[in-house]
Design a protein around this nucleic acid. Sequence first.
DNA 1: TAGATTGTTAATCGATTAACAATC
DNA 2: TAGATTGTTAATCGATTAACAATC
Lengths: 210, 210
Amino acid sequence: MGKEISIQVIRRLPRYYRFLSELEKEGVDKISSTKLSAIMDTSASQIRQDLNCFGGFGQQGYGYPVSQLKDKIGSILGIQNNYKAILLGAGNLGKAVATHMNFQSLGFELSAIFEKNPRLIGTMLRGITVKSDEEIKDFCTQNKITTAFLCLPKDAVSAQVDILYSLGIKTFWNFSHYDISKKYPDTIVENVHMSDSLMTLCYRISESQK
Amino acid sequence: MGKEISIQVIRRLPRYYRFLSELEKEGVDKISSTKLSAIMDTSASQIRQDLNCFGGFGQQGYGYPVSQLKDKIGSILGIQNNYKAILLGAGNLGKAVATHMNFQSLGFELSAIFEKNPRLIGTMLRGITVKSDEEIKDFCTQNKITTAFLCLPKDAVSAQVDILYSLGIKTFWNFSHYDISKKYPDTIVENVHMSDSLMTLCYRISESQK
DNA sequence: TAGATTGTTAATCGATTAACAATC
DNA sequence: TAGATTGTTAATCGATTAACAATC
């Protein structure tokens, strides 16, 4: 096996994918690391290093074929997989996540939405009827769910993760501050901490005003 | 002036703040870097290094006073500032952001919400009446707005940022993929790229299945 | 062939970790 | 005082940048 890919490189892949998609749409069919670095505001060296973690996608003296490289990165990211996911929480955040994200182009398929609040059960989101929390177990055992998107308040997450984990779900897209990895170290967790992000912005404003 | 604080340290501050708040709630009044590192799953060394960027908050042989340290970090983050912000976009994402975030505890005050879609104008979100896009200029000149939360589709962001920038707003919490810093290098931008996050998760699932 | 640009190795830079003297 | 734990310096590690030979 080759060396492990660093998380920094992985986190840059979606951005490469976006810029290459843009270039593809504009009809650009080749690009050099230097030109791409100018567009993306990074260094040519970093682009070449990053890409070479996965293979030699370029051609010396020519550059990189845009469309092909985009596809390669997409395939490295695994977006062709359509991993089946369920969404927990149909409140404002869950609603935004369900309606806002283009799951299919990101490697996922939203199979079901679950909610505790009876008022929301039965409503439709993106063509999916919101189910009761109580149906989670049955649904997950009947369908091959790999991932859960957690749009619940922190207090509710803990108990739900216990259930989901017991059902074999070990991948989580987590919007709460509940620390899943700590209790279940063998899970794959991607956290979205919106409030941390906003606090960081606050810091930077404060700093700039000194 | 001392050395610049690295972005890595800054991004860890909200997390320290959260864990210390938790400890404070639990009635813990002192904690050592070793114990905190165990709770937070990090290293004691890093905690001491991070904190010492801002001053010596601990006491040798004793540890750190929880409540005081929490307050210190809050004040370093600048959450006492209540920076006035407007939110653009009252769609699903904007709605989630408006209702979900506790702005005050994060250093901000949501002053107004603007939207293009006439159906949404006039509706209420968190006690705030959604205004028309066309009122942005007047509102921002009359009120001292420092920050804009951008919950708009990418195509709409570009034009709005031009207007906001011309009104002197140079701080953005941006949920779109539009690259604000590139056009306006003197802005402070915090991006939340939810789709990048999900793609990263996809990569890690794919990787784990190899 | 000459020019361009990659792939890759080496150098640099910065962040994390380790160690320990200072001190409560 | 002895034990604990910080603050801080030094060592290590890893990521980024620079350089250049390979090659299209």
